[in-house]
Amino acid sequence: MAGIIGYGVFIPRFRIKVEEIARVWGKDAARVSSGLGIKEKAVAAFDEDSATIAVEASRNAIESSGVNPDDIGAVFVGSESKPYAVKPTATIVGDAVGASPVMTAADFEFACKAGTTGIQTCMGMVDSGMIKVGLAVGSDTAQGRPNDALEFSAGSGGAAFLIGNDKPIALIEDTYSFTTDTPDFWRRQHAEFPRHAGRFTAEPAYFRHVLSAAEGLLKKIGKKANDFDHVVFHQPNGKFPQAAAKKLGVDAEKIKTGLLTPMIGNTYSGAAMVGLAAVLDVAKPNDEVLVVSYGSGAGSDAFSIKVTKEIEKKRSKPSVQELVAEKEYIDYALYVKHRQKLKALGD
């Protein structure tokens, strides 16, 4: 199967602490923070959106890997916070990275897993010989309604993966998906903020799909979850991945590297992909990585990945940890200004 030949990440610089959001709404900060397993979240500035994040992550992927943009035959951007309701983000990325015009492109939407579905699509196109290299991006400036539980966790960020056959830094050994019609989280046309089904989002939604995809993949390839060196789950908060690891018998230590939500919030389409990037930043050749994404609505894509010795030459710059460390705290007032939640302000 096709492999990963490059990757890049982008996380906006602004951070707001869960404590600051709790202060505004009169909630017990320590309780909210420990309940969600989130300390702070990344916030896109007024001039950032899922397209600018997708471009930055894609440029980091291309520059770090040395892939020729002319070789990119497909660009797929997964997001649920598109700057345009109608008009692709993928064409903005294609032009900005120099992959245009001889390429196919589209935006994917499947809540938090559209980016990993983009990876699967690129794998199929590479393996069938349709394209040489595919670019799959997951990018979001996740929106939470003020004073909604999601406001504490909805972060901003994204990751880009180049899929191809030429000197892969990691082989994708197999992939397996589990998908059903489960309305746990949605945003209707013209609605500004998504709605969610509260506790319903846990057992029948996140855990059923993540565990079923993981178990399906493991059965297919004849492995146990704890055989892997690193495990990355979709991370809507800091707690769900820990519970998923426990249920699959994965040592708690193995999910630490790929668990970023406590420091940047849930980056939605970017979440599992940023986690995988953080693992690739430190992985050794022959390390094996299990990645399971989750998108509400609902589905999970599971991947069994094996790192090659090419990783030493093509680790992405800046690293995920460098991006996490570069931060500037803002208060709730500036957060409201940057996320343009002041309707009276106008254009």
Partner: peptide, 20 residues
Amino acid sequence: MVFRRIFADGAEGVIAYGFK
């Protein structure tokens, strides 16, 4: 160089992106 929104042509118009 970084890639950002430069301006939008009103709430319903196109968005100009580019370098900062």
